[in-house]
């Protein structure tokens, strides 16, 4: 495995796709080819061509082979990575998917950013326009002090929590879409809510 991704985490909330017959090579290494966007792709990874060259068994060297659960469990499932290979094998289709993922993430980020800008950017204007706010007191503390000194922080953490949750959901939807039992449709998906 190459350096980019580091340890992978098991994906949650999605059942492993159907039983895999061959304990083949590192899943997804050889890029599989899929039908063109227009055609109906085969459902799921099950009809994998048996002609796939299994790497280890063919090598003549008597190497000891550890028989254990396939490594794909660690990597979070077989089909997602096959889907990634497809993305690379078919640039146009892959680009459509990735563009929609980027768009969804950007829309999410800009939404939170807009709220942040409205709240944080609106506060000075509100204080400038409404002098009453400047000297108002809540629980014995001046309102501007309370807002800037205390209230701002839980709001920032809350916004961050919201974003992390939703950004992960966007990615999960995208992954499910790529590798789910139903193969991806030809049209670019709109994965976000």
């Amino acid at each position: 495995m190459t350096g980019l991704s580091g340890p992978r985490r098991p994906r949650r909330g999605r059942p492993e796709p159907g039983p895999e017959p061959e304990p083949g090579p590192e899943p997804g290494e050889p890029p599989r080819h899929k039908p063109l966007p227009g055609q109906k792709p085969p459902p799921g990874p099950a009809p994998r061509p048996p002609a796939q060259p299994p790497a280890a068994p063919e090598s003549p060297a008597p190497r000891r082979v550890a028989v254990s659960a396939p490594r794909r469990h660690r990597t979070g499932g077989y089909s997602a990575r096959a889907g990634a290979a497809d993305l690379h094998a078919q640039p146009q289709l892959g680009q459509l998917y990735v563009r929609s993922l980027v768009r969804n993430q950007l829309r999410l980020s800009l939404g939170v950013l807009a709220v942040l800008a409205a709240v944080l950017g609106g506060l000075p204007v509100a204080l400038a326009a409404l002098p009453g706010l400047r000297t108002a007191e809540v629980a014995g503390i001046r309102l501007p002090w309370l807002l800037l000194g205390v209230v701002a922080y839980p709001l920032l953490v809350g916004a961050a929590y919201f974003h992390v949750r939703h950004a992960e959901r966007v990615e999960r939807d995208f992954t499910d879409l790529l590798g789910g039992p139903d193969a991806p449709p030809a049209a670019p998906p709109r994965a976000a809510r």
Partner: peptide, 14 residues
């Protein structure tokens, strides 16, 4: 692709 693809999907292919 590299920047936006989740790792569980990304970089699987050569």
């Amino acid at each position: 692709l590299r920047m936006h693809l989740p790792e569980e999907v990304g970089s699987g292919g050569s």
